[in-house]
Design a protein around this nucleic acid. Structure first.
Length: 446
RNA sequence: GUGGAUGUAGCUCAGUUGGUUAGAGCAUCGGAUUGUGAUUCCGAGGGUCACGGGUUCAAGUCCCGUUAUCCACCCCA
């Protein structure tokens, strides 16, 4: 027999209904923010991903040479494809571009909880708008996309950091540009490794910089712990005398922060936000505000992450287009919803199950069923002759709301008996009124 | 890529110091039941005990290898 490949899921109808329900919540949220859906290809040229993330990424890709000799890879993320699609039409596309996408991504990794080799991700991005308003809009959408499941501020939080402030801070400590980016990826690990390991990494990282690695490490540890703007400003003052030019840059960025927080408050998501310099994101291409959403119950895993990446489109060889976006995985979100008992599921059960009491009435029943279906009512029936008990059992097993009974006695009166399967109430309905009546008693959406 | 734990029916699990034909509940299918389900009773099907090798008179049980899953690393776009 055959098994699924490691890390790949298959969705039986019940799981598929849950997955679809999550997707439709995401879609609805994105559309309510004025985002349009797009869809890039699943298979891309390998180079698109190595260009963005470096050759090392290959070890984590499903990559191979196709029959035409092309080096290709299954997409591990959507962002490079998005950057290409927007970049290719950069001149002729109306800004801001507000696009979202739900698609399966593939990563060749050893699987563990919440991390598979194939997983769906909800991505939303704004391109061509470099104002703080775009950052606020993206962050608000991220939060509303989770809140739409009924999740509250006691269940998840968004930690908001800033690579610009980090760059300024490291500059103030005397680091030169090429050391700054490297140092940021070390700082990203600070919460995940022991203090000793962190000092070691910093030592190695700053080799040849002529700086005191231990002192820098301590200062970074302080900075990571900062959770509000006032203490951040204070921390800068402690680094010593700042040049007028530097102070100006710092003041401008603090002003950006205040603007962003004000916008987020107006967008009604302030409760979910915490200022947190511990968020820097490992990736070199992030350029400004960065953020991660974490569940605050259970394992405290990351649910979504993102930030500003103004240089990516240009790096891929297209015009300079600024960008900010996030990605959210279906596995971690689904696990959290399961944990707190808020997992939604699509209702796929038939609304009506026809009981065909006599085979002589099958033709007539099918005609009525066909009418019901045309009216958008989910309708089902037994494909083979069976007695009443069997058919009722089947109606119950598939979760139907109503049974409509086709039988000689009722047919003589040109109608059917309709039975509400949840309270066992029965009534006689003429064929001509059936559609209307069923629609009326099923006012909820189809 | 590294380390640890686990693998018995579709699912959840029993299975004694190694000992005859590997069990249960749920689920599935059939019947009681040719005008009524969710809530009755009876029955049936379903197993290469993950796969391969070894030890033994005898292996689901012990040993080795492989594979898969889970967990922890690495990495995390």
């Amino acid at each position: 027999m055959f098994n699924t490949l490691p890390g790949f899921r298959e969705f039986y109808p019940q799981e598929c209904a849950k997955k679809n329900a999550i997707f439709s919540v995401w879609k609805k949220a994105a559309k309510s923010f004025g985002f349009s859906e797009f869809e890039p290809p699943v298979l891309e040229s390998l180079e698109l991903f190595t260009e963005k993330s470096g050759e090392e990424i290959k070890s984590q890709l499903f990559e191979f040479v196709d029959k035409g000799g092309r080096a290709v890879a299954l997409r591990p993320e959507m962002t490079p494809s998005l950057a290409r699609m927007v970049g290719a039409k950069a001149g002729g596309i109306r800004k801001p571009v507000k696009w979202f996408c739900i698609g399966e991504n593939y990563r060749y990794e050893r699987q563990q909880k919440g991390r598979l080799r194939a997983f769906y991700q909800f991505n939303a991005d704004i391109l061509g708008e470099d104002s703080i308003a775009a950052d606020a809009e993206i962050i608000a959408l991220l939060i509303e996309s989770l809140r739409a499941f009924g999740l509250g501020a006691n269940e998840f939080k968004l930690r908001l950091g800033d690579r610009n402030l980090w760059v300024l801070f490291l500059e103030a400590l005397g680091l030169k540009e090429d050391f700054i980016v490297k140092t940021l990826s070390v700082v990203d690990k600070i919460e995940k490794v022991s203090p000793e390991a962190f000092f070691d990494m910093m030592q190695k990282n700053l080799e040849g910089s002529g700086l005191n690695a231990e002192e820098i490490a301590w200062r970074c540890k302080d900075f990571v712990a900062l959770k509000n703007l006032e203490s951040i400003e204070l921390c800068f003052k402690k680094t010593g005398s700042l040049s007028a030019e530097f102070s100006e840059k710092l003041d401008a960025r603090i002003k950006d922060w205040k603007e962003l927080l004000a916008l987020l408050a107006s967008l009604n998501v302030a409760d979910f936000i915490s200022v947190d310099m511990g968020i820097v994101r490992g990736l070199a291409y992030y350029t400004g505000f960065v953020f991660e959403a974490f569940q605050t119950v259970g394992t405290g895993r990351a649910l979504a992450g993102g930030g500003r990446y103004d240089n990516l489109v240009k790096k891929l060889g297209y015009p300079d287009v600024s960008a900010v976006g996030f990605g959210m995985g279906d596995v971690t979100v689904g696990d959290l919803l399961e944990l707190v008992g808020k997992a939604p599921s699509e209702d796929t059960a038939p609304q009506v199950y026809a009981i065909i009491g006599s085979e002589t009435l099958r033709q007539k029943a099918l005609k009525v069923i066909s009418e019901l279906r045309k009216a958008g009512i989910r309708s089902d029936y037994s494909l083979k002759a069976a007695n009443f008990g069997k058919q009722f059992k089947a109606a119950d097993a598939v979760g139907a709301k109503y049974a409509i009974i086709f039988a000689e006695d009722e047919d003589a009166k040109a109608g059917v008996k309709v039975k509400n399967l949840s309270n066992s109430e029965e009534s006689f309905v003429e064929y001509s009124c059936l559609c209307e009546l069923v629609l009326k008693s099923l006012p909820q959406k189809m």
